[in-house]
Amino acid sequence: MKLIIVLLLTFSGFLSAKNTLSLGDLPPAPEDGVHDPDQWLTSDSRIEIIRNIQIAKSKWNTEIYIVVLADHPEADAAILAKETAEAWGKGKLWGVVLHVIGDPEFPRFFAGRKESFGWSDTQEEDFSKSLAKALSDVEGRAMREQDQRMQVETGAREFCEELGYLGLVMTRIEKRYDQARGANLKVIQKQYSDRNFLKKLLMVLIPLLLLLTGIIIYLTRKRRKEAKADFFFPETSPRKRFLAPWSGGADVIVDVGSRLREDGSRKG
């Protein structure tokens, strides 16, 4: 009899040692998001929970885990939930329903998100408040159930809805940030390519300007030289006419305005 009790305690101790989570010694992530080695949840509940978990994951990239333990964890429940969610999942938003079988203080509900970059302080603050409210709502609705299994099931469903919505909000914020960053990147790229273009343009323009300057200087000097240079007309055999020795006259006459008035008197 004593032997049986010892064996039972040993076995239960072994079991409890197996069915608890400790930091640094987490089991691999359950595929369906439910860690319930003792199969405390009913199969119908499990099916329903898994369906909600999958919806949350596929639609809103929100990871929800149900952890059912036979014994209290060694670490603080909140820390454990966070570590578990971050170890098991890659999602930015997570929710964990942690239950210790037989403990009326449970199930407990935890939610969190991985740090995002580029959020403003206001966005961080607002989202944290929303997350806290969502968590509170989940807990409130779940704890209305009398049965702990229903509490876990309800909690999972409510997590799915609440965190699903917040997941959408996160996605939108991050999308806008990416767009802004992308636009900024484009601006930076454009500036870079503009600078590049400017460099190339200068590489072409500067030699061209130098060439042009050289040409202008050359032409200016040539003109100055021509202006200074004396011209010598060739000797020609004169077109002598009218028996005039020095000039045959020309047909150049311009009227610049007579000084004579009509009466023949002089103006001015």
Partner: peptide, 12 residues
């Protein structure tokens, strides 16, 4: 007086 200008060049 008459307001005219003329130009007469030599043969050269």
């Amino acid at each position: 007086i008459n307001g005219n200008v003329s130009v007469t060049p030599g043969y050269g």
